[in-house]
Amino acid sequence: MATCAVRWLSRSDVLAAALPLASALEVVEATLRDHGNGAFENPPKTGVHPQHDAFIHAMAGWLPRQKRGGVKWVAGYSSNYKSGLPNITGLMVLNDPETGLPICVMDAAYLTAVRTSAASAITSKYLAPSNVDRIAVIGAGLQGLYHVKLMSLIHPSAEFQVVDIDPSAVDRLANQVSAEARVVHVREAESAIRAADVVVTATSRLEEVVFQFGWMKKASLVLPVHVRGWSQDITTASDALFTDDVEQFTNFIRATGSPYEDLSRVRGSVSSVIVGKLTGRSSNSDRIAVFNLGLAIHDVAIAAEILSLAERQNIGTVVAY
């Protein structure tokens, strides 16, 4: 019997592969076009919820045009910080499309941060108002950091107003992006949101209402990384409401319970706007909200790019099985 082998990429290996963030944007935009044109398989994520503020999900995806498929097994525990552990952890498995054999297992924390932020950035490319001068980022953790990095590539002249309950976290973020973006530390979320053209709430899961949609000015876009935390009128007062995948969003809401009374106004997927099947911003004064839950096909596409870079540079450990 032939020997099978899988390449293991640790967290440090994934970082050493050095995926250019501009390439991540291109990959995510191309994958959204595939989604909009129906060239994908992305079954709604399934999983378990061991604690009220925690999940462990399986996310499978297949991209027939690129012939790339795999699954991410990802956990989110918002209380992990108390033990000095990351909020998001997981593993990504890529499979050979011809045989189904696993060909790579990699740490999934970095690719999750990158693909989530890239999806927000590409969403803002198509749905943000025409002039983006200020972007509010609420939360200066890993998601906040990569949202600044990726969105600065789409909006290079924008000022990032960053809010966090820990002022030192904002300082660390500002130092990490000093060559890429202008960061201003703002103490109150309300003042940052009221001034922003684009708002990203990159906090951990929130059970209570923390943000009021009434703070959003006309001609703005809000991108909640997590569904919860906003006032009810985010779904009723917004001029347009989108998600990244309607089927997945519907399944998620049914499984976890909606924090909002009315989600009937979800117009469709961001990808349908990108490929021209739906109208996005009908007026520059629109206030638009987008719930991007995260697409497995983005994980597959980003992971495939990382694997390709790792193979060319001989990064990682190849294990026979």
Rank of each mutant, 00 (worst) to 15 (best):
S157N: 12
V170W: 02
M1P: 00
A303I: 04
V270K: 06
V300M: 10
D133G: 15
A5H: 14
K277P: 02
A60L: 10
S258L: 05
T243S: 13
L221D: 01
L25S: 11
E159S: 13
G276D: 05
R11K: 14
L145R: 10
D166N: 14
G100R: 13
T112A: 07
A54L: 06
R267H: 05
F40K: 03
V162F: 02
S282I: 10
A320I: 10
P259G: 05
L19K: 09
L9I: 12
T279R: 14
L309K: 13
N284H: 06
V114G: 05
L173W: 03
H52Q: 12
P44Y: 00
Q176G: 00
N80A: 01
Y260E: 01
L91V: 15
S23P: 00
S124G: 15
H35Q: 13
H49D: 05
R65T: 09
D299N: 03
V319Y: 13
Q176C: 07
R312F: 04
G69Q: 12
R194Q: 15
D34H: 03
T116K: 11
N251S: 10
S220L: 05
A320H: 13
A140R: 06
V290D: 09
V266I: 15
L85C: 02
V93R: 02
Q51C: 04
I138D: 06
T46V: 15
R172H: 07
T203N: 09
P43K: 00
A113F: 01
V184K: 15
V28W: 07
D166E: 12
S124C: 10
V28L: 04
L32W: 13
L150P: 00
Q212S: 14
M1C: 03
L19N: 05
K82N: 04
D239H: 15
S264N: 10
A195W: 03
H57R: 12
E188M: 12
R228E: 07
A192G: 08
L221W: 12
S120L: 07
V209G: 06
V148D: 08
A75C: 06
G229R: 04
K67I: 03
G276Q: 08
G61I: 10
T256W: 08
E207R: 15
S130F: 07
V199A: 11
P43M: 01
C104D: 01
I193E: 02
